[in-house]
Amino acid sequence: MHTIAVIDYGMGNLHSVTKALEHVVDQNQQVILTSSPEIVSEADKVVFPGQGAARDCMLAIDEHGLRETVQDAANNKPFLGICMGMQVLVHASEENGGTDCLALYPGEVRYFGDPLLDENNERLKVPHMGWNQVRQTREHPLWHKIADNSRFYFVHSYYLETEAADLEIGHCNYGKSFTCAIAKDNVFAMQCHPEKSADAGLQLLTNFAQWDGEV
């Protein structure tokens, strides 16, 4: 049996992620929602979801003894980060007065800004909440059968800023132009929620379930 572990560190819409994955996997695959470092280590693939605040997220990862497990998975097997699960992969977040993150990649997570303005100088709401278009900046197996500029569901007040141009795989616009998905080797991570993005999202999860981690 091929296993996909969804890391449960007590935060986020874990039911949604798990249910959406269960909806798309084939009969040889099993989705396991777990907080056990051992089970995550043994899994074939890992999904790292997340919601809430950066500081709480990092504290919860450490409380559950999952820091090394997450780092290890990101180095070794097909790995999908979602929302906060993408943000904590970089160096630091501005949230909660500054939070150190897992630092697997260069980058910082910043507040959208108050006020955030559009091109006509109209004020935009924060959080960025709803369906926005994702521009695919490079080809990737996880974009398979998903049209460029498809809409995904977003909900966040902080965005990723990275100088490592090779990390970006998806781009979005909301008052400013920002990186909304990153990919490197066996890791793919996105700000938006594929588990809440109807057909485009389910296709992305299907692609992940079938992905061997090669680009």
Binding site: S16, E22, A198
Partner: peptide, 29 residues
């Protein structure tokens, strides 16, 4: 939440933190 994969909001009778947790765990966003 097991069949419909778009955001779900649930309201009515949410009175304490435990109610929030229960609904989020059930699959509400």
């Amino acid at each position: 939440a097991s069949e419909v994969f778009i955001p779900l909001t649930v309201g009515g009778g949410i009175r304490e933190v435990a109610d929030v947790r229960k609904m989020l765990n059930a699959g509400a966003d």
